[in-house]
């Protein structure tokens, strides 16, 4: 399926910017069932400084916000052809070893709630059926952590989202990652785009997770939608947690506040 994506991120600052940087992981890569046919990112109110591939082979760009502006707009758009591989991303790429995805990060550190969930899934499912166990885990998370926007933050950790019982795709993915690791499976975070069938205007960028299996490779799980990623999903960045794969990571010096607005269209 060919997906046409137009993703506009706008930051509005209450004071003219003195010095600020934005690190972008917004460029999808061809491979693993997706082919990037065209892609561009255009920035107004800022200047691209450089680009490189990070440790997880995510294409990364650094942008310096122009001094004195009060708005910066980042437009990422293009066309990606995706094949339905029923959630199987497949083989591992790059120098980052798979074992790097075995240990917890500060965002995915397990507390009593996550450990309890891991114990329950372990005792209720068959250890010989890895896929079955992971699907059960995904369903359990969707059930106990209601999808609700505006109640968790980008800084919310997996343990607190599980304890709160509500969250968004980021929280779902990080909870799944944390528990999968507790159960002995390397797991990683994926940020990207999803075309919801019933609409062109999407609420936000999407996030899901992938769990490593020695035979199949990386397998995707979208906890929030209860499905395996198919040809409506575009993978953009991966990492150990949401911080590694964040579409935008910023740093600003000086006073004032900032507002973020995202507009996203994904269509065939």
């Amino acid at each position: 399926m060919q997906l046409r994506i137009n993703h506009v991120t706008t930051y509005t600052y209450s004071e003219p910017v003195f010095y600020a940087l934005q690190q972008l992981r917004l460029t999808p890569r061809s491979g693993h069932g997706q082919t990037v046919l065209e892609w561009s990112s255009v920035i107004s109110g800022g200047t691209k400084q450089l680009s490189f591939d990070d440790q997880f082979v995510n294409h990364t760009e650094l942008v310096l916000v122009d001094e004195g502006v009060q708005t910066i707009e980042i437009v990422s758009s293009g066309v990606v052809d995706v094949v339905d591989r029923h959630g199987i991303t497949g083989r591992h790429r790059g120098f980052a070893p798979v074992w790097l995805f075995e240990s917890a990060t500060p965002m995915t550190e397990a507390g009593p709630n996550l450990r309890q969930l891991a114990r329950e899934v372990k005792s209720e499912t068959d250890s010989g059926d890895v896929l079955g166990r992971l699907h059960a885990l995904s369903a359990r998370i969707a059930q106990s952590v209601r999808y609700e926007t505006g109640r968790t933050e980008v800084t919310t950790k997996a343990e607190s989202a599980l304890a709160a019982g509500h969250g968004v795709c980021q929280d779902h993915a990080q909870i799944m990652i944390s528990v999968a690791r507790l159960l002995g499976h390397p797991a990683r975070y994926v940020s990207g785009y999803l075309m919801m069938n019933d609409r062109v205007e999407q609420d936000a960028t999407h996030a899901w997770c992938e769990v490593w299996d020695e035979t199949l490779g990386w397998i995707g799980f979208d906890v929030s939608n209860g499905i395996a990623p198919d040809d409506r999903y575009v993978r953009v960045a991966v990492g150990r947690d949401s911080r590694d794969a964040a579409p935008i990571m910023g740093l600003r010096q000086g006073a004032g506040t900032e507002d973020l607005h995202v507009s996203l269209q994904v269509q065939q």
Binding site: L21, Q23, Q49, L50, S51, F52, D54, T60, L62, L251
Partner: peptide
């Protein structure tokens, strides 16, 4: 230095 790792990874 914010961003120095990016400059480094870009080889600059």
């Amino acid at each position: 230095v914010p961003g120095i790792m990016d400059v480094y990874r870009a080889g600059n």
